[in-house]
Each structure stands twice: as structure tokens, then as C-alpha cells.
């Protein structure tokens, strides 16, 4: 039973977007801060820091999760995916990201990383999710720019392209 002292840092290792990463964290370090400050993965944004706004949403072990409601030490050995892992290759956007661009589904972009991770996970888990389900998932995110409608439209567009196999963007 390892007990980690409050003042000491301990090694934390996990897989981030397919590659192993490691760093050191004291017990109270949030995973959101660890990703940004230790891993340099600043695509994940930190908004409210108590699980309400959704900006820090990532994927842990294939499941949507708020990285601000997870301790870095909890992530030891986990498989983690963030917005940096969505694009298929440098200079090219994923189908979902491209739909966001096409539909003006973002303005300032602060909330976007989290929303992309939630929708990407939804379409992996439930390729046939309907609009009600899409809106249900978006209910876990706050966006102060778009009024949400362009996000819904982008999601529906991306989903229909993913289902038809028309992934040319």
C-alpha cells in the first residue's frame, strides 16, 4: 500500500495519445495541470476547475472524463487521449474538427478542446447517436460564443460523413 506524502513528488507515467509520458507530481496535483505543465500538452484547457464547464474534458481509458476532477496520481498507468491526438497527421484535421471549421462551431476556442473530446468519444461509442443524444452530451459543456447551434450542426455533419465513410475533408 503505497502512501505518498503531501510534500513529495512521485513519478507518474501514462500513455498520452499513443506515446509514453512521465513526470512527477505531488498528490494534490490535478491531471489537467499535469497535462499542461508537466507534459506540455496545453490543448486541454482549464476553465472552472470544479467539473462544470467541460473545457478540460479528455478521454481516460476510452471514457470521457474531466481532467480537473482527476488527480495526476490517479492516472498512473492509464491510457489518456487529448485533443492533440485527434488530427490524423500534422497539418490535417479530423472529420469532426474540419466540420467545426466549416460550420463556425467555435469562436474563441476555449471550450472547443473539451467538446471535441466528448463528441469524438460519443461517435466512437455510439456511431448512430441521434441529435437528442448529441445535445445530451453537449449539455456537459459551456460555450459562451456560439450559442451551441453551430456545434450541433457540425456534430451532425461530421457524424453523417463518418457513417458514410466520406472522410475527405
Amino acid at each position: 500500500m503505497p502512501r505518498l506524502s503531501r510534500d513529495e513528488t512521485t513519478p507518474v507515467r501514462f500513455t498520452l495519445n499513443g506515446a509514453p509520458v512521465s513526470g512527477r507530481a505531488e498528490p494534490r496535483r490535478l491531471l489537467s495541470d499535469f497535462l499542461r505543465n508537466e507534459c506540455g500538452a496545453t490543448g486541454t484547457h482549464v476553465g472552472c476547475e470544479h467539473g462544470v464547464c467541460g473545457a478540460c474534458t479528455i478521454r481516460i481509458g476510452g471514457t470521457m472524463a474531466r481532467s480537473c476532477l482527476t488527480l495526476a496520481v490517479q492516472a498512473e498507468g492509464a491510457t489518456i487521449e487529448t485533443v492533440e491526438g485527434l488530427a490524423p497527421q500534422p497539418g490535417r484535421l479530423s472529420v469532426l474538427q474540419e466540420a467545426f471549421r466549416r460550420h463556425h462551431a467555435l469562436q474563441c476556442g476555449f471550450c472547443t478542446a473539451g467538446i471535441l473530446m466528448s463528441l469524438d468519444t460519443l461517435f466512437l461509442d455510439e456511431p448512430d447517436a441521434g441529435e437528442v443524444r448529441i445535445r445530451d452530451v453537449l449539455g456537459g459543456h459551456l460555450c459562451r460564443c456560439t450559442g451551441y447551434e453551430p456545434i450541433v450542426q457540425a456534430a451532425i455533419d461530421a457524424q453523417s460523413r463518418l457513417r458514410s465513410g466520406n472522410t475527405d475533408v
Binding site: 500500500m1 503505497p2 502512501r3 505518498l4 506524502s5 503531501r6 510534500d7 505531488e26 498528490p27 494534490r28 490535478l30 495541470d33 472552472c48 476547475e49 470544479h50 488527480l71 496520481v73 498512473e76
Partner: peptide
């Protein structure tokens, strides 16, 4: 909005908890 320091125990069994 950061937690105050605490020790952390990663329990491996209910008895440890």
C-alpha cells in the same frame, strides 16, 4: 482552485482502506 496538500494512499484491498 487547487486542493490543499494531502497524503495519498492507493489502496489495494478493502482491509487497507
Amino acid at each position: 482552485m487547487k486542493p490543499a496538500p494531502f497524503d495519498y494512499v492507493r489502496a489495494e484491498s478493502l482491509d487497507e482502506v
